[in-house]
Simulated scan of single mutants.
Amino acid sequence: MNPLEIQDRAAGAIMGAFIGDALALGPHWYYDLTELRRDYGEWVGDYTDPKPGRYHDGLKAGQSSQAGFILKLLLRSLVENKGYDEQDFCRRMDEELFPLIDGTPISGPGNYTSQSIRDAWRKRVQQKRPWGQTGGHADTTEAIERTLAIAVHYAFQPDKLAAAISDNTILTQNDDTVVSMTVAFGAVLGKLVQGNRLDSDISAKLMKLVKSGALPFHAVTNDDLQPPKKGDPDPPRAGRFASPDALLSPAYMAEAAFDADIQIDPPWKVSIVYGMPCAIYHQLPAAYYLSALFHNDFESAVLHAVNGGGQNQARAILTGALTGAQVGLNGIPKRFLEGLDNAEELMKLAESLASHIEIR
């Protein structure tokens, strides 16, 4: 393995997420596509200002939402501690984020605070609960939007990746299905940083990690999803999560992207096929599909994520990370890097994280 190529992919994943976040800042959460086209034209192709009275009102083109703020917070923690330190991350949340929000949606960095963060703030600040008793039931991708940095750092250590992402996720979201899908996304991203492609073979590679015990998923079948044989233990591999389905779905999304008989045209309509809402089960299929379809075209992947409307910011963050890991930092158009607010600092953090990946 070429360490420089790995570092390029790792930095591409991190910067891809920041770019996706900022690209969707203006046209965020338009569920009426006619209204979206009226305000931003037929195609959103670059950073844009939010419109007055809309989400993130007052911010400027290229700036980050609160998702980007928290991603940067965790990224700095990983870099400075050379790995995941939960106590340090929680301290940063207490000192750097929570004093800036008040438990209402329209508050804090980015001028919007998501449900899971509002819940954690109430339990931590108002109810004085310790970290670990702050998780809520939001079924969204908010944990993925920050733990993708953990996935990059532990790309070659799937057992540590799964443990750290699980631990970080339950700080704000404690539903087991959400946790399992968040860990699965991290496992996919780790494979892409290694140099694998998001294609129909990705799930088989992930299932090998389940069978070896590196990923804590329950496996009820043998290789290639064949039924267990008489006399096999029940189950062949028991894990924390109820099933391996979160690891199996990415391959199906990739297969759909490559199947000539399946057409989502134009590709931004993936948001209509899989759903515009915020829930993780709407967001992940769309991100996997677009990142497989445009595995070598960062611009097309992330802009189709943005132009699909609805919760396009989460879709663009996830798609940006997955596609950025496949094309690498060198494959991201320079105009997206140049137009990103605070790009120099973010780039230094991304490159620092990438340079400390332990390659195995």
Results as ranks from 00 to 15, higher is better:
82 K>I: 08
136 G>Y: 04
91 R>G: 11
319 T>L: 03
275 G>Q: 04
61 A>G: 11
89 F>T: 00
20 G>H: 13
154 Y>M: 00
193 V>Y: 00
160 K>Y: 11
233 P>I: 11
2 N>L: 13
111 N>A: 08
6 I>V: 15
151 A>E: 13
135 G>K: 05
223 D>R: 03
229 K>E: 13
125 V>K: 06
189 L>D: 02
1 M>L: 10
9 R>W: 07
341 D>M: 07
80 E>C: 13
88 D>N: 15
235 P>M: 10
114 S>Y: 14
215 L>Q: 02
75 L>E: 06
292 A>W: 13
79 V>S: 02
102 D>Q: 09
64 S>K: 08
186 G>F: 10
71 L>A: 09
181 M>Y: 14
105 P>V: 13
260 A>V: 10
312 N>R: 06
160 K>E: 10
196 N>C: 11
143 A>F: 09
72 K>E: 15
243 S>A: 15
236 P>C: 07
260 A>F: 06
340 L>C: 02
270 V>K: 03
61 A>Y: 12
49 D>M: 01
308 G>N: 00
26 G>W: 06
315 R>T: 12
290 L>V: 13
212 S>P: 01
38 R>D: 14
353 L>S: 04
45 G>Q: 08
68 G>T: 00
335 R>S: 12
124 R>S: 07
171 L>Q: 13
255 E>I: 14
346 L>S: 15
254 A>K: 07
